[in-house]
Design a protein around this nucleic acid. Sequence first.
DNA 1: CCGATACTTGAACGTTTCTTCAACTGTTCA
DNA 2: TGAACAGTTGAAGAAACGTTCAAGTATCGG
Lengths: 114, 114
Amino acid sequence: MADIGKINTDSAAALRGMLPSEDVIYDLAELFKMFGDPTRAKILQCLQIRDLYVGEIADVLEMSISAVSHQLRVLRAAKLVKGTKEGKEVKYSLDDDHVTKILEYGMTHVNEDD
Amino acid sequence: MADIGKINTDSAAALRGMLPSEDVIYDLAELFKMFGDPTRAKILQCLQIRDLYVGEIADVLEMSISAVSHQLRVLRAAKLVKGTKEGKEVKYSLDDDHVTKILEYGMTHVNEDD
DNA sequence: CCGATACTTGAACGTTTCTTCAACTGTTCA
DNA sequence: TGAACAGTTGAAGAAACGTTCAAGTATCGG
């Protein structure tokens, strides 16, 4: 029954057409990936409290400065944080209003009883 | 100047105390990880439109049934989707109200001009 | 200028992740 | 019963990821 196959194929194509474009989906996944690593999630949480130097973040998270710096580079590339040089130090801050809200929303979910 | 070191350490500890617990952060990262893969993001978008059988999802995404099934297992484990057996087939649906809102929020961010 | 401090960067590594393939279970229907 | 269909599962391989280590740049104080 070739027709049934055809119907399914068409319906699949119709649904496919309703989804966001590949580019948007990819960007969306990239965004959520940022929150999907505990170290990055913690860094973002820290920066919600206040702007911090790299060394301070490392102290708070009890991680090496290098590891933190690598993750800050990733978050910078995703435009979620920005770093400003202040003399020898670099002060990091959130670079996006959505960060707080996305994080908040995730927390709401996580804090719920199943 | 040992005092300065002390002050920084204390301040780091203070900040650390303001963060969610390790467990919560870990859960939060796990949640966002689900949205952080394009295949899973697409599956969740599909299921926002309507409930679907595994084969339908595979058709829409133009992926193998096996690949889709593997990701559905992951999403099921995260309690974001649930599958209901209907005869030979299994119909999947979203298992969480937050999914739509989190996805929406991400979309808002992604669709913005920098 | 020199050493110390603050941070960045690149390579290396072990781990995790995602897809594919093949084998398997369960259901329908002829 | 057995062939066809829908989906699950485990193993395997490739790619992506996160941390560490060592080396590099930049800034400040003496």
